[in-house]
Simulated assay, not measured.
Amino acid sequence: MNYKRAGLCYPHAGRTVRGYRNHQVLLGNDTTIEEKLAILANIARESRRSNKIFLSYEECTGNKKTFSNLPALVELINEAFGAGCVKVVLCIRNHFELAESSYAQFLKGGLYGINHKNFFKNDGAAIGEYFEFVHRKRGFYPFSYRDIFLKIKEQLPETSIRVLSTERSDLGGQDITEYLDQVLDVQPKDGFADLLRRWSGKRPPTRRRNERFSVKSLAALQYAYSRHDPHECQRSRNKIAAIFEGATNEFCESVSVSGDLFDKIYTYQRKDAVFLNSLAGSFNSVLSVPRKFEENRDRRGTIMLSPAEKDKVDKVLRK
């Protein structure tokens, strides 16, 4: 299903078949110029009856290798479909929510191209250290949207860039997929919300598809990475999480935003406020401090796994 009848093509060519169904292959270093040209030729055939083509890759700006490939890809697209045809849509969320979610995703499977073994080689690696590690490797913090926007603009000075909040209250109660339908002038029955329903077994698009593990499960993954092969930890993440099924979503300093990290995020959020308020659209929820994070600001404490719990985690990874 690529919505050609609505004038929109979300092409199968170059798109992953599982997970986020994105087009990361077009930005990958492992894809040759010839292969990218072949994918674009297939996209051109798919989109013959469309006047819009939508490509996506959530991690584009967070991965140094793929981000550096962006100008070359845009040049190829302009050559294939016409000069100036590319427009960039940068979707952003609340800074604090992004930070905790990003670190959880890193623990569950990886993010921003950061090598788990390198990060966890020093015992005690935690969420604050993670973002400093990302900053050293990537040159910016993922929660600094102005910096990301400027880096894209530096790479693509002639390309139109639009920034959208993904927060429902900033979109008049709509889901981002429903809002994108409006931005792209696509009828809802032919748009992204319908696409997600089909992919997710007709579940309503309001349901979260990437649910986070409990805080204790994330603390257990930290323990696992510090002592076992990272690939095995990723393969066994659901089994590790199952050990702590039903655990309350407690605070844990090593995986929750608090202290110095809270202050750093808040500082960048205030800087972003000046930038975002100069753009079209609402960003009030993006620029808010959710109650949970305000309450955790000065909290301290770490969830300690008992010897028996550590033994259970070790057994899962030794099987």
Results as ranks from 00 to 15, higher is better:
F262G: 02
Y225K: 08
Q234M: 11
R227V: 09
S214Y: 08
Y266E: 15
K264P: 04
Y268F: 15
A224M: 06
L218E: 04
R235Q: 11
L261D: 01
R207A: 13
F262A: 04
K216V: 09
G259N: 05
R270D: 10
F213L: 09
Q222E: 12
Y268Q: 09
R235G: 05
Q234A: 12
R207I: 15
V215T: 15
R237H: 06
E253D: 13
S217R: 03
E250M: 03
D272V: 14
S214A: 13
E232H: 14
T267I: 03
V215G: 06
S254Y: 00
Y268H: 14
R207F: 12
Q234H: 11
Y268N: 00
A241Y: 02
A219P: 01
D263H: 12
C233H: 00
Y266F: 15
Y223R: 02
G246Y: 11
A241L: 09
R209I: 10
C233D: 05
A247T: 12
S258W: 03
P230G: 04
R235Y: 11
V257G: 07
R270M: 14
E253L: 10
F244A: 01
A220F: 10
Y266I: 04
E211P: 06
A247S: 15
A241C: 07
F244Y: 01
E250T: 09
R227M: 08
S214L: 06
D260G: 07
Y225S: 03
Y223E: 12
I240D: 03
S258A: 12
K271Q: 12
T267R: 08
F251Q: 07
L261R: 12
Y268C: 02
K271M: 06
K264G: 00
Q222G: 05
H228W: 02
K239S: 11
R209W: 09
S256C: 15
H231W: 00
N210R: 13
V255S: 05
T248E: 14
R208S: 14
Q269F: 07
I265F: 10
S217Q: 09
I243R: 05
V215E: 04
V255Y: 08
H231M: 10
K264T: 14
S217W: 02
E245D: 08
H231R: 12
P205H: 03
Y268E: 05
C252P: 08
A220E: 07
A242S: 14
